[in-house]
């Protein structure tokens, strides 16, 4: 059909220039590892008039993952939540509170059983029957067991819902677990602390585009974002090869942007696309800011990757 016209019309309504939009679609297609022939299809998926229902559950979390998503600039968050998806439950953004919020959740789930996407941030406290985390008088554990299995798919945004994350760091006082382990379902995991919003958007677009979720690695991570190590994509890699290392943050080597391996960089053991997509619309990423990678998208990184300034 006249895709161009539809897209143009919708873009006009949204006050987005077509050029900007196509630039984003190209960027997103590249992030997702698609050829340029997919760019118009990505555009169509984003501009589709039907909005996929999304329920966002927040468990033992810090809200950083939701904050991260609202930093998306292509598309802007208002476009994502008003035009691309229907965010039917999100404790951070929704107008309703209390009973009205609860009703929104249960209506969204019952009306769209098996058709909605469930996004989860935060780990699930399981110790002592889950009493360390409650929403509306119910344990997070029971909410997760009730809602997640009814979804078309559960996407875990951030390292906490993906692998347990911070609440599960030793001694794991609340018995925090990943959604997969707490509920016993398979999940799509988009780890990071927080993850880059482009990878969340990319996963959702993948679904809108192909009607299925992206290909995953053995840790549940989309291959389009997590197939290579930070180290293999690092712009400072040549310094590593040349034996040029930062040994103190005060040094000339630090000012020259040498390799951070010897001050503890976990890039060689961390799979993510930070060096290529960067954060906050390509502004920077930890190694660019002179700080070692802490491996925040790897399972159990708070214990396995620390002390963070100790070389691997």
């Amino acid at each position: 059909m006249e895709l161009d016209k539809v897209v143009e019309q919708r873009l006009e309504q949204k006050g987005v220039s077509r050029r900007d939009f196509m630039k984003f679609c190209t960027f997103l297609s590249a992030t997702m590892g698609l050829s340029s022939s997919f760019v118009p299809k990505v555009a169509e998926a984003l501009a589709s008039p039907k909005r996929v229902p999304v329920v966002w559950l927040a468990f033992a979390e810090c809200t950083g993952c939701k904050e991260s998503l609202i930093r998306t600039m292509y598309p802007w968050i208002d476009e994502l939540v008003l035009d691309v998806i229907s965010l039917d439950y999100s404790e951070t953004l929704m107008a309703a509170s209390g009973d009205a919020a609860e009703k929104a959740l249960h209506d969204a789930v019952s009306k769209n059983q098996g058709k909605f996407i469930c996004i989860v941030d935060g780990a699930v406290p399981t110790a002592d029957n889950g009493i360390y985390g409650m929403i509306a008088g119910k344990t997070m554990l029971s909410v997760a067991k009730d809602i997640c299995p009814k979804a078309l798919a559960t996407i875990c945004v951030g390292s906490c819902s993906s692998y347990g994350g911070l609440p599960a760091a030793a001694p794991n006082p609340t018995g925090a677990k990943s959604v997969k382990d707490a509920v016993g379902i398979s999940t799509v995991n988009i780890p990071g602390c927080p993850p880059n919003p482009i990878n969340v958007v990319g996963t959702v677009v993948n679904y809108l585009l192909f009607g299925k979720l992206p290909d995953l690695d053995d840790k549940g991570r989309p291959l389009f974002a997590y197939a290579k190590t930070i180290h293999d994509q690092c712009p400072r890699r040549s310094h590593f090869e040349n034996g040029e290392f930062v040994t103190s943050f005060e040094s000339d080597e630090a000012k020259r942007g040498y390799c951070l391996y010897q001050v503890g960089c976990k890039g060689p053991e961390t799979y993510n696309n930070c060096p290529t997509v960067k954060f906050n619309a390509g502004t920077s990423w930890p190694v660019q800011a002179g700080h070692p990678c802490i491996g925040c998208s790897e399972p159990g990184f708070w214990d396995k990757m620390s002390p963070f300034y100790k070389p691997l």
Binding site: C62, T63, E91, T92, M94, A95, S97, A101
Partner: peptide, 10 residues
């Protein structure tokens, strides 16, 4: 009122 929404946390 539980949950209070539009805040950080629970």
């Amino acid at each position: 009122i539980d949950p209070i929404t539009r805040i950080e946390g629970h």
